[in-house]
Amino acid sequence: MIPALLGLPFLSFLLCLLVIRLGVKDAPDGGRKTQTAPVPTAGGAAIALSVILGLFLVGVLPVTSQNGLPALLLFVFASVIIGFFDDFIGLNPKLKLLLLALVSLLAAAFGPRLGYFHLPFGPSEGYALPVWLSVAGVGLWLFVMANATNFMDGSNGLAMGSATLMLIALSILLNWLALAGPGTGLERAMSDLTALVAAATLGFLAWNVAGRLFVGDTGSLGMGALLGAAGLVVACRLTVWEPVILMLPFLVDVFMTLIWRARAGRHLLEAHRDHAYQLFLRAGWPHWKVALLWAAMTLVSGAGLLALGPLFGAEVIFVLLALGMGLWVWQRATLGRQLAAKGL
């Protein structure tokens, strides 16, 4: 496993160079996209191919019908394929959302089952979920994470850099759960997979941080699907709040922005530059500084989960959620108003 983790960044780096040479580019649109010239895209294809080659080095994952892994892997693969077609031929936004909703529900129906829902101050055993509610809730979680990562992919290094940190934290947590036992092998398999994807993404980031290659929907949808799938495995062993805590830097910005746009009467499916990270870019912040800020928030969430979670449980989410929402509102009330006054 260690040789694969050390070699994948270099392999991914070289495959990203091949993707750049293929000449598939993302053109500026004068709106949401911030680049001034066409930039090579679909770097997610290089990440995916690197991971597939890495799996051959470490051995086949324990795919059995008992642990639900096939459904999760098919969900991630389907998300990558949907993103690939969107990158290369373009998909109608509504069709893309419909396809993602369909594969999310299928993964929820045939994948690991979430049997209980826990409230931070509720009974320790949680509340039993009927099958239909479990499928609906899991499907919604998978759908949200795939799209949330895609929404956050608008600044060099931000989405994939933060997602890599999330994958590392998930790999550590899943490894702990695998060692704690008992399990079906799903925790170990997902720990290995998240570690491999994190290693492969490092090679891509060497290009992406410099603005020389975009991950495209191939990568952002695939990465979001993997984050959702790995988070589901954690939720099945612990509670739903552990993965939510880890992914707050994405979820807070996405949902707060959607709520703000809905209150302002703006179209929710329309491309825009209203996310918190986009406000920083509109104010003149360089991409690397915005990416570094989100990486710092991801580290805080990860540290809160891994260090404070075992001590205080899921209640730590209230502190981190209040902090994240407070920062979002403060930025909107200060920087957002300044940009509006300047017409930016």
Rank of each mutant, 00 (worst) to 15 (best):
L11E: 02
S12R: 10
L18E: 06
V19Q: 13
I20E: 14
I20M: 14
V24Y: 14
G30Y: 07
K33V: 13
Q35H: 14
A37M: 11
V39Q: 02
I47W: 00
A48L: 11
L53I: 14
G54W: 10
P62W: 10
V63I: 12
T64A: 03
L69W: 02
L74P: 00
S79R: 00
K94F: 10
L97M: 15
L100Q: 07
L105G: 04
P112K: 04
Y116A: 02
F121D: 14
E125M: 07
G126E: 01
L129H: 02
V131Y: 09
V135R: 00
N147G: 10
G154M: 14
M160T: 11
L165E: 08
L177C: 14
A180K: 08
L186F: 08
A189V: 02
A198G: 05
V209G: 04
S220R: 09
A225L: 04
A225V: 03
A225H: 03
L227A: 02
V233F: 07
V233Q: 07
R237H: 07
V240Y: 03
P243Q: 02
V252I: 15
F255N: 00
A262C: 11
G265V: 06
R266V: 09
H267P: 01
H267M: 13
A271G: 13
P286V: 15
H287L: 11
W288A: 14
A291W: 08
A291I: 09
L293K: 10
S301W: 02
A303M: 02
L306A: 09
A307C: 10
F312T: 09
L320N: 05
L320G: 05
L321K: 08
W330K: 13
Q331K: 10
Q331I: 13
G336H: 08
Q338M: 12
